[in-house]
Amino acid sequence: MPSNSPPTINSSSTRDAREPLLEITGLNSHYGPVQVIHDISLSVHSGELVALVGGNGAGKTTLLHTLSSLHPPSAGTIRFAGHDITRWPAHRIVATGICQVPEGRQVFAPLSVEDNLRLGAYRQHRDSGWVRQEMERVYHLFPILDERRQQLAGTLSGGQQQMLAIGRALLGRPRLLLLDEPSMGLAPLLVEEIFRVIVELNTQGVTILLVEQNARAALAIAGRGYILETGRIVKTAPAAELLADDDVRRAYLGY
């Protein structure tokens, strides 16, 4: 298990010592008249792997959509690396280094694996040397993609599409990687493989916010965790504590 919890977690007095990379304060979000996100506050420090777990319909995806500006918040602020990015348009959020691997992969089906990765680097394309190098890194991380560079993304298996979606986000040069249910619909062995890569990326220094319904797997690799229920954060603690917490175990871990 990576030990990536920053020293500031349990003590609010030292929290000011280092501003978090991502800081969400009092965030609310609606779909029409229905409020989906209630007053959420959450922070991620540089280098952390933070898990946000919750059941179906808890608002996980809405929160990530709001973060990436695919959906406007109705109240609250989002600060990232010292900037208030609450009202920034989606393309600017990506440019500043928040890259999302969306729920259900969402690869560009009629385009090749290589083109999907190239488009991932849409905001970085001027730095062609870096793009080439990063593409090789992704191919190294997922050798199966290397074998299928010219294959159309839509013809890949679910697991391969998930790898491609992660690779595509990495080419956006993330300072914060958002992962939305990367385990969804995958066989246990593939989930293990994907989670192994997530840990590897984190050890290499990528800050990660992992959103998962698979609470056990997510908390097992995370440093800290948040529990989301019907749009509210109901608990936050180091991941190991959450794994041992009786309420959490009953509600999310099933034992």
Binding site: S68, H91, V94, P102, V107, L111, L119, Y122
Partner: peptide, 17 residues
């Protein structure tokens, strides 16, 4: 082309739709 295939994903890679 990406915009037409998947608008949300296009936004998520930083394309200004």
């Amino acid at each position: 082309l990406a915009c037409s295939v998947n608008r949300a994903a296009a936004q998520l890679v930083g394309i200004n739709v």
